[in-house]
C-alpha cells in the first residue's frame, strides 16, 4: 500500500511546530481521512474540527500546501505527494490548538449586521409577490456554508488584521443577500462604507478562488455593493439629483 507524509502544525497560539507523520493512503482518500488516520494511529491528541465530511458543514477548514481549503473536499490525488503535504490552521483567526481556530469573531460580526426587514405584505393574506429572477440573484449567496475560507485568504484580515474595521468577504456576501433581496427595505449602504469597511477590499478575488461553493463573491456580491456605496457617497451627479428630488 502507498504511503504519504503529512506535515501538520501542532501547538497553541503561544508556540507550535510542524510535525511530520507518514501514513498509508489508499484510493479515494481525502486529506481529512489521512488526518483521522494519523489521529487514530499516531497522534491521539491531535485537535481537528470536523463534522459532515461532505463539504457542507464548513468545519474542517485549514490550509493545505499553503492554500485555504476544506480538508474533506481535498482529495489526495489532487496533491503532489513527493514532498510532505503541509496542513496548517487558518491564519486569520486565533489558534486554539493544532488545526482548530477560534472563529467566534465571525459570529459576533454577523450579529451586528442589520436584519432582514421586509416591506408590508403585497396581498391581504399576508404574502408577497416576487419575480423568480430577482430571487435567483440572491440565491447564490445563500449557498454559503460559513467555512470562513474566504475570510482566511482575505489579505485585509490575514495580513493586516483589520478585524475591527472590516467584516470580510463572508459578510459582504451576507449583506448582499439582504441588501439585494427584492423584499428588503433596510439600507445598509452607509454602514458598509463606514463601519463595515468595504473600501478596504481591493478586489484581488482570492475569496472567490477559495470558495468551496463556487460563489462568485467578488463579482456578484462585493463589487455590486461597492457600486451602491459609490451611488451614495462618491457620485456627485447622483448626489445632486437626490438633493433636487427632495
Amino acid at each position: 500500500m502507498a504511503s504519504a507524509t503529512f506535515s501538520i502544525w501542532r501547538g497553541t497560539a503561544e508556540q507550535g511546530k510542524f510535525f511530520n507523520y507518514t501514513t498509508e493512503i489508499s484510493e479515494g482518500m481525502v486529506v481529512l481521512d489521512a488526518v483521522h488516520k494519523i489521529q487514530a494511529e499516531q497522534a491521539n491528541d491531535l485537535a481537528v474540527r470536523w463534522n459532515c465530511k461532505a463539504g457542507k458543514c464548513g468545519s474542517c477548514s485549514a490550509e493545505i500546501n499553503g492554500m485555504p481549503r476544506l480538508m474533506c473536499m481535498t482529495r489526495l490525488n489532487q496533491l503532489p505527494l513527493e514532498r510532505p503535504v503541509t496542513i496548517e490552521p487558518m491564519k486569520s483567526f486565533p489558534l486554539i490548538k493544532d488545526l482548530v481556530t477560534d472563529v467566534s469573531w465571525n459570529f459576533r460580526v454577523k450579529k451586528q449586521i442589520k436584519q432582514f426587514k421586509p416591506r408590508p405584505p403585497d396581498v391581504p393574506d399576508g404574502s408577497w409577490r416576487m419575480q423568480q429572477e430577482d430571487v435567483d440573484r440572491v440565491q447564490e449567496f445563500r449557498k454559503c456554508i460559513e467555512c470562513f475560507l474566504c475570510q482566511d485568504v482575505c489579505h485585509v484580515l490575514r495580513e493586516h488584521h483589520k478585524h475591527e474595521e472590516f467584516i470580510g468577504p463572508r459578510f459582504f456576501v451576507y449583506v448582499a443577500a439582504l441588501e439585494m433581496h427584492p423584499l428588503d427595505m433596510e439600507n445598509r449602504v452607509e454602514e458598509l462604507a463606514k463601519a463595515k469597511g468595504i473600501g478596504y477590499c481591493n478586489i484581488t478575488k482570492c475569496c472567490t478562488k477559495v470558495c468551496p461553493e463556487s460563489i462568485t463573491i467578488t463579482d456578484n456580491a462585493i463589487i455590486p455593493l461597492k457600486e451602491r456605496v459609490v451611488d451614495e457617497f462618491y457620485d456627485p451627479i447622483k448626489r445632486l439629483f437626490r438633493r433636487l428630488r427632495r
Binding site: G66, V156, R158, Y200
Partner: peptide
C-alpha cells in the same frame, strides 16, 4: 492569494 506582503500598513481604497 495566501502569500505574504512586503508592507505592514494598509489603507485599501
Amino acid at each position: 492569494c495566501a502569500v505574504g506582503e512586503p508592507r505592514g500598513g494598509y489603507r485599501g481604497e
